[in-house]
């Protein structure tokens, strides 16, 4: 049933939230309609193509987000998306995003972090975050393959002295040496790509203890 367009206020703050190329369109309910049973319909547009396309899973939905990752997976293209609100036989005009360029706008998730210790050092092995993929069976694409200049900001915090070091690295293995034996250290890692500012997502904080000093341990015996 066609609705009367323009009788409802438009959804607000329509924007893509993108992390590792998982591209979610999000919006806020129209002003003044919070709490009412409003439904939404989404369309998207590939810049340079001919027409707006429907996203069937996001027709007449009550939630205020729509996953457009599959539709926007070619990250070197640019896209628009729009959403309208519907309530009864009334609907709003479309609320449209700006031009969305996944290659420049996606945020980079944290790497996987593996730690091993010995008396005075901690070895860190990083695995680059993975690009979003449609099916788990698909082969994974590392964000490193997309951004060859991907870097990591590694922070290590000595819980005894409350001192923190940070180091910016491009390789995936590094060793922090000259640490104190028998001390708890906590590590945080962020991925980033030089260029346009992007929100960063630090890894979970991981803490490990360096081994006790073996020489003093022997003397005690």
């Amino acid at each position: 049933v066609p609705c009367v367009s323009g009788d409802l206020p438009k959804p607000t703050n329509v924007a893509f939230i993108s992390i590792n190329m998982k591209n979610i369109l999000q919006w806020n309910p129209p002003e003044g309609l919070q709490g009412m049973e409003v439904s939404y319909t989404v369309q998207y547009f590939i810049y340079g193509q001919k027409k707006w396309l429907n996203k069937s899973e996001c027709r007449n939905i009550s939630r205020t987000y729509c996953d457009l990752s599959a539709e926007t997976s070619d990250y070197e293209h640019q896209y628009y998306a729009k959403v309208k609100a519907m309530w009864g036989t009334n609907c709003s005009k479309w609320a449209e995003t700006g031009r969305f360029y996944p290659f420049l706008e996606t945020q980079i998730g944290p790497p996987e972090v593996a730690l091993t210790t010995d008396e005075k050092s901690i070895s860190i092995v990083l695995t680059a975050p993975k690009k979003w993929k449609k099916n788990p069976e698909e082969s994974s694409i590392s964000m490193q393959q997309i951004y060859s200049n991907l870097k990591y900001n590694v922070s290590i915090y000595n819980t005894k002295s409350n001192r923190t070091w940070s180091q910016c690295v491009t390789n995936h293995t590094l060793v922090f040496s000259w640490l104190e034996p028998g001390t708890l250290y906590c590590v945080l890692v962020e991925s980033f790509v030089p260029g346009p500012p992007r929100l960063t997502h630090p890894s979970e904080r991981q803490c490990v203890s360096t081994l006790e000093d073996q020489t003093t341990a022997l003397e005690v015996k």
Binding site: F45, G48, K51, E76, H77, G98, R99
Partner: peptide
Amino acid sequence: RGIKTAIQAKDTFQNVTILSPS
């Protein structure tokens, strides 16, 4: 980035591109 939103908003022909990167 300082002009992106304003300039892209003036571009009303979304169905054509100039650089056609692909």
